[in-house]
Amino acid sequence: MAQVRLDKLRKVYPNGHVGVADASFDIADGELLVLVGPSGCGKTTLLRMIAGLESISGGTLSIGDRVVNDVAPKDRDIAMVFQNYALYPHMTVAENLGFGLRLRGTPTSEVDRRVADAARMLELEQRLDSRPAALSGGQRQRVALGRALVRNPSVFLLDEPLSNLDAKLRLSMRVEIARIHRKLGATMVYVTHDQIEAMTLGQRIVVLNGGVIQQIDTPMNLYDKPANLFVAGFLGSPAMNLFRGTLRADGRLETPESTVALGELPPTSALANWLDKEVVVGVRPEDLQPSDHGSLSAQLEVIEPVGNEVFLNLRHGTTELVSRVAPRSLPLPGASMTFGFAPEKLHFFDAASGQRIG
């Protein structure tokens, strides 16, 4: 396996559009790193640049100790798994798994050994003589993964490999990919627009928007300390609740519609510089809880029971909120409720730039 290093990597298209703007980060040897963001954010472009399928406009890309900016894809020692399975329909599973190795002139005995190892790992041993048309979606995706595994490359690149699967299959394949990564200790770069996939799979996550890296960190650090409003709103399901208003020294947030009592403010010098200025205050749905002594009143609009938890969709003036609670007896939609939150659970952002305060 190998380390991957991006140093101010840049992609500019002929029409002037910047697909990726000066991306700089290292992917450690054996790390599973996830690129995540909305459609058009540059994550697939960045992956294709690593693969050599997209030209590099500026910066340096290294795999191991070798700069590969101008190295052909076939010579980069990478294997890629695409969103569509890209299997040869006239070939059996075994033939699909070993096709790339045979193209490279690998001895037949070595091809057979690697194909058998991959089939055993992916539980495809009973389907080696089947053709893709006879396989389920999950099995086809496992064959696509296996075709990359038999290559034993320095880096695995996975471009939204689960997006064509239904919800149940996506869950099982996420577990499968995590298990494979743990067994192989492989360097993997995984692209997805699904923030749940990103949070559950990635050892670290790169969050992109508009071709610009917003934050790079572990899943829980991103969740607990988002660097800006975009990351705060993108990661987390349901999304973080946000209030915009003027911050006062006594712990009040004066919004255009009402005043929200935030409680005693954290004693940070950074926050002290924002008194009497416009800020955005965020609170996660699980930190916004019904309370008879709460400081925030809201109208209950929709109740969403999802088994072990319940989502309460609320309205505070024109602001829509969500509270995540344990199953309990609840009033009917339309009722007014009061909610509380711990001041230390609040997130503060600059209303103008969107950057985290403190």
Rank of each mutant, 00 (worst) to 15 (best):
R113I: 00
N308F: 00
D224V: 09
M121L: 15
L53C: 09
G105E: 04
T192G: 10
Q299H: 07
A351Q: 03
A133N: 09
D112L: 05
A335L: 13
L35F: 15
Q139M: 11
E176F: 12
F339Q: 11
D70E: 15
D29V: 00
S258P: 01
R10P: 01
A270F: 00
D159Y: 05
V260A: 10
E301R: 13
Q83P: 02
R127H: 15
L103I: 13
K277H: 13
I196N: 02
P161H: 07
V325Q: 07
G282I: 05
A272Y: 01
R114P: 06
S258R: 15
F311P: 03
I180W: 04
P266F: 11
Y88P: 07
L275C: 00
A86R: 09
A261C: 03
I63V: 12
A335Y: 10
I27E: 05
L124N: 06
H181A: 02
G138R: 03
V155K: 04
P267G: 13
S172F: 08
R104D: 09
Y85D: 01
N69Y: 12
D65T: 13
L122W: 07
G42C: 05
V310G: 08
E197H: 10
F234L: 03
L101P: 03
T192Y: 11
M91P: 03
A144S: 15
L6S: 09
T192R: 13
A272G: 06
P161N: 14
A133E: 09
C41P: 00
M80S: 06
V175G: 07
T318S: 15
L157V: 05
